[in-house]
Amino acid sequence: MTRKGNPILLVEDNPDDVDLTIRAFRKNGWSYDFVVAQDGVEAMDYLFNPENRLPVLVLLDLKLPRIDGFELLEKIRSQERTQMLVVVVLSSSREDRDRKEAYRRGANGYVCKPVNFIEFTEAMKILGLYWLQWNEPPPHL
């Protein structure tokens, strides 16, 4: 795997969740760099700046200040540079409405964050395994 060097973009406004997510990834033995965006605007700033390296995976919370997850997802899919990025929604919500909206706007996956940290760690492990190890990314990377 030669994806080392490309970071994971974590779009999440809750610092607790940021810490827990990064912790879960580390726990599972992945050493990817994490770029953390507090909201959609920060995420866009990073993604649409050609100097920045494109993330190998975008973990996207939906409820964000300023530009929320849905809007960001739409922006990502609308730009040629970013349209093929792997975006997995990480949300507390299991609402039909949210899931439907996320897939409609082009999410590659939707994971409801378990409250139990053991389960959460397990989920992140499997997610990482799938998207970072076994899934073949689009060829632009």
Binding site: R23, E95, V115
Partner: peptide, 20 residues
């Protein structure tokens, strides 16, 4: 919506950091 989204987050933090 807020229950599903916002109530879970602190709970997850409690659970997560207790585990940590």
């Amino acid at each position: 919506y807020s229950v599903s989204h916002d109530l879970r987050a602190p709970l997850r933090a409690i659970s997560g950091f207790a585990r940590a």
